[in-house]
Amino acid sequence: MMNMLQMPSRTQIAWIKAALFALCLLPALRLALGWHNDTLGANPIETITRASGDWTLRFLLITLCVTPLRRFTGLNWLLRLRRMLGLFAFAYGCAHLTTYVWLDQFFDWMAIAHDILKRPFITVGFAALVLMTPLALTSNAWSIRRLGGRKWQALHRSVYGIAILGVVHYWWLVKADVREPMLYAFALAWLLVLRAWWRELERRRQQAVPPPVPAYKGRVIRIVPTGK
């Protein structure tokens, strides 16, 4: 048991991934059932828009929790779940956009273009989703190989900016009660500060190491001043 937690086998990882996949689908399933049974309240389209938006942001933040969780627990295999979580954030983001374009605006492209240009909260949400697209497209082993680890990492660091845009999007759309967006803002701030702190620690560590002594080849002739 202990061993499985520390270092699960390939099959065990596969099972964990399958279970996580099913778990991530639950919010969507609940909405689909609610729509079917008409239990989403008086304004079901609004309920779906909001729930899908909520889950986009939540999955983004959950994805950002993987690295801290891994470092605090030492469970390195957690990293292998990160890609799926990030892709779920994107999937819910796409569902959110689809709800807006289809159910809410009903393909009124003029109204949609107007919204994107004129409503700051929509502009920001749209920017966030656009920026998520290259990350989703490069979330595979082939892309990592193709780009090289360094470039790939640089690209995927934009997730921090995307999460900030997501929180701003939420903050700007509420009318007066900013408690919930504030909760997300605090969570995100904590995740970002943690990373900044790690970077700082790493910088200090590198500075503290004395510069390496150059190694000379051949004989060393010591020059000793004479007493004259």
């Binding site: 389209i45 109204a111 107007h114 919204d115 409503r119 909260f121 700007w172």
Partner: peptide
């Protein structure tokens, strides 16, 4: 409204 259109309603 600065944050949403008032041209239509649901």
């Amino acid at each position: 409204h600065p944050r949403w259109s008032q041209a239509t309603e649901r």
